[in-house]
Write a protein that binds this DNA or RNA. Structure first.
Lengths: 361, 361
DNA sequence: TTGTACGCGTTATCAA
DNA sequence: TTGATAACGCGTACAA
C-alpha cells in the first residue's frame, strides 16, 4: 500500500445512517470495486466472492447510493412529469400510462403539479433541470404565455415531450389526440341531426386544445353550411363552474337567441352546462342537445347521459413515455406529433339514440 | 446587456452538455466557492461580484446540480410517495394534498405506483432508499403480508409515514380517518331505521381498512342488539366488480335469506352492488337499502344517490406530508396515529331522506 | 479476477 | 470577502 490513509473511515453507520460500499468491502477485506461489480451484476466476479458480497450487503442493509451513481454516470434514470391539474380524472390515467411504461424501462418519476400556474410551471422545469432528470413530460398550464421558455429548455439539450396540451414549433414532440378532427366529428353529429343554431362553450384560447377544438367546431359548421355566429361562441374554461357560468350567460338571453344544441369544450364544462339547463327546467336533449369531450368517469351517469369523445388517457401517457425514453436513449431523433385516436361515445344527451340503456356501466 | 439568443456555450468538455459552477467561475476568473455562495444566497459575498455571477450564470444557462449537492449534503429534499392505485379518485386527491404541503416546504415528490402489488411495493421502497429520499409516504398494497419489511425500513432510519392503509406497531406514524368509528356510525344509521337483517360486503381482511370497517360494522350491530350473521358478511374487495360479484352471491340465495340493507366497504363496491340489485329489478332503498364509504365522485350521481362516508382525501395527504416533513426535520419525534375526521353524507340510498335533491352537485 | 487512481459537481472548513 | 482543499459514494480505465 503506497499511500497513507487519509480517510478517517467510519466503521459504524455514522452520520447519514447509511451503509456504503466501502463498509461492505471492509467487512470482507476486499475493494469497493468488487462490491460495485457485484451490485451491478457484472460477470467478471468470482461466484464465491459474489455470494459473500451479497450476503454482507444484505446483512448490513446496504442500499447502493443512486445519487453518487447518477453523479458519475450523468444519468438519473428519472423522468420529470409535469401535470397541470391532478384532480381532473384524465391526468391520473395519463400518469398511470406513463408509469407503466417507465416501470417497464426502469425509469422513475418525479411528479410536479403546477395547478395551472405558469409560475409554478417554470419553477418546476428549473427544478427538474437541477435534479438532472433524463427527460421531461409536460402538459402546459392554461396560463401559458411564451413558448420561448420551452425553447430554451430544448436548446439546453433537455429531452422533452409534450402531452395533451402542447407547445408546437419549438423542436419538441407532442402526443395528443386529434382535437380538431374529433371536435369536428362530434359537431357534425349535431349538425347531422338538424339542430340549429349550435353554440360552442370554448376553452381558453391560450391553450392548444382550446384553440384546436374551436377550429374543429368551426370547420364542421362551415362544411355543414351553417353560420358560425360569434355570439354563440362563449369562451368558458375547463371547469364545471366555467361551463355553468357560460351556459347561464347564454340562457339569460331572450329565448329566441338560445342555441338548439351545444358543444362543450370538455366534460366538466358540459356538466356545468347541464346543471344550468336543468335549473331552468329545460330538458336534454328535447330542448337543448349537448355534447362534451373527454368521457369523464361521470359522463354516463348524468341525468342525460353525455355524448362525448373518449380520450385514451392511458394510451397518451404510454405513448408519451415511450417517445421520451427513446429520445433519451438516442433511439429516436425525429421530432413528431403523435396522434392517438379518440372515439365518439354516443349517449342520450345529443338525442341521437332513443333506447334507454341502464345507467350503471 | 440584452439577452443573447444562443445561450449555453460549453467551454470545457462537459459531455453531459451541462454548464457547471466551474465554468461560471472560469468565465469571471473567480473560484467555484464564490459561485456556490451566490447561488445559495449567502450574505458574505460582495454585491458587485454577486451580480456578476448571476449575470454569467444566466447567460451560460447554469443550473446548479442538485445531484452533486445532495451527495455532499446528504439531503435530497425529496419525498417518496407510494400509491397503490392511482386511478381510484381518492388517491389523486391525497397526492394533491401531499404536493401542496411539499411545495410549501420546498420538497419534491418521487411517485411510485404499486398497482396493488406487494412485489412492486418492495421494489419501490428499495428504489426510494437508493434514491436517498428524505422520507417516504406509503399506503400499503392490498396484498400486504409481512410488516417485517416495513420494520426494516424504519430500523434503517428512513422516516416513513403511512396514510390511509397503515401498518401499525412498527414505530411509524399513520394518518387516516377513523375507519372503525365511521363504519360504526354509518351502520348505526341503517339499524336506526329498522332494517333487519343487514349484510356487509367487506374488504380484504389483510388490509387495515378492510379489517377496521368490519370491526365497526360488528360493533354497531352488537350495540344495536342485532345478530351478526356470518353468512351475511361476504368478503368482497375494493373494486366495482368485487361488489357486483358479492352482491350477486347474496341475491342468488332464496329470497328469505336476502338482507334488507347492505353496508359496502367502499363506494366502488357499492356501485357494483347497485348494479347487481337493479339488474334483479329491485329498488333502492325500498327493497334493499345501501350505504358506501369514501364519497366517490360518482356517488351522488347513482340512480339511487349513495349515502356514504366522505373521506377528506386532500386533508389526509396534507397531514401526512406535514407529519413526515416535521419528522425529517427533527421537529417531531413522537410516533402517532393522526385521525382525520370523516363525515357522513346522507343521500337517498339508505332511505333516510325523502326529498329529491337535484342530482347534479 | 481483483485492485488503484481519479473524477463526477458540489459544499464545509479553514486559511488568507 | 474570497480561495484552496478535501470530502460525499460511486464507476471508468487502467494495472496487477
Amino acid at each position: 500500500m503506497p499511500k497513507s490513509k487519509k480517510t478517517a473511515t467510519r466503521f459504524t453507520g455514522a452520520a447519514s445512517g447509511r451503509v456504503t460500499a466501502r463498509e461492505v468491502a471492509a467487512r470482507l477485506g476486499i475493494s469497493t470495486m468488487t462490491v460495485s461489480r457485484v451490485m451491478n451484476k457484472r460477470s467478471n466476479v468470482d461466484e464465491k466472492t459474489r455470494r459473500l458480497v451479497l450476503a454482507a450487503a444484505q446483512e448490513l442493509g446496504y442500499r447502493p447510493n443512486h445519487i453518487a451513481k447518477s453523479l458519475v454516470l450523468r444519468r438519473t434514470h428519472t423522468i420529470g412529469v409535469v401535470v397541470p391539474e391532478i384532480t381532473h380524472s384524465f391526468f391520473p390515467e395519463v400518469i398511470r400510462g406513463i408509469e407503466e411504461e417507465a416501470y417497464r424501462s426502469r425509469y422513475h418519476l418525479i411528479l410536479m403539479h403546477t395547478a395551472e400556474s405558469i409560475e409554478r410551471e417554470k419553477d418546476a422545469i428549473l427544478t427538474l433541470e437541477s435534479k438532472r432528470v433524463d427527460g421531461i413530460l409536460l402538459s402546459t398550464a392554461q396560463s401559458v404565455a411564451d413558448a420561448d421558455f420551452y425553447k430554451e429548455v430544448v436548446q439546453l439539450g433537455m429531452p422533452i415531450v409534450f402531452y395533451d396540451r402542447c407547445a408546437h414549433g419549438i423542436g419538441a414532440s407532442c402526443v395528443s389526440i386529434d382535437d380538431e378532427e374529433s371536435a369536428r366529428r362530434i359537431t357534425n353529429h349535431l349538425i347531422g341531426h338538424g339542430y340549429d343554431p349550435i353554440a360552442h362553450l370554448s376553452g381558453p384560447q391560450r391553450v392548444s386544445i382550446g384553440l384546436a377544438r374551436l377550429r374543429g367546431f368551426k370547420q364542421a359548421m362551415a362544411e355543414g353550411g351553417m353560420v358560425v355566429r360569434d355570439d354563440l361562441i362563449v369562451e368558458a374554461g375547463f371547469h364545471e363552474s366555467d361551463g355553468y357560468t357560460a351556459m347561464k350567460k347564454l340562457l339569460d338571453r331572450p329565448r329566441e337567441a338560445w342555441p338548439r344544441a351545444v358543444v362543450a369544450v370538455n366534460d366538466p364544462a358540459a356538466f356545468g352546462a347541464i346543471k344550468a339547463i336543468l335549473e331552468r327546467g329545460l330538458r336534454i336533449p328535447q330542448d337543448i342537445a349537448l355534447v362534451g369531450f373527454s368521457d369523464d368517469i361521470r359522463a354516463a351517469l348524468m341525468p342525460a347521459p353525455l355524448t362525448t369523445i373518449r380520450q385514451p388517457a392511458y394510451e397518451i401517457g404510454k405513448q408519451a413515455a415511450l417517445k421520451l425514453i427513446s429520445v433519451i436513449e438516442g433511439k429516436s431523433l425525429v421530432v413528431e406529433d403523435i396522434v392517438v385516436k379518440a372515439e365518439e361515445v354516443i349517449r342520450e344527451s345529443c338525442g341521437c339514440v332513443k333506447k334507454n340503456e341502464p345507467k350503471v356501466a
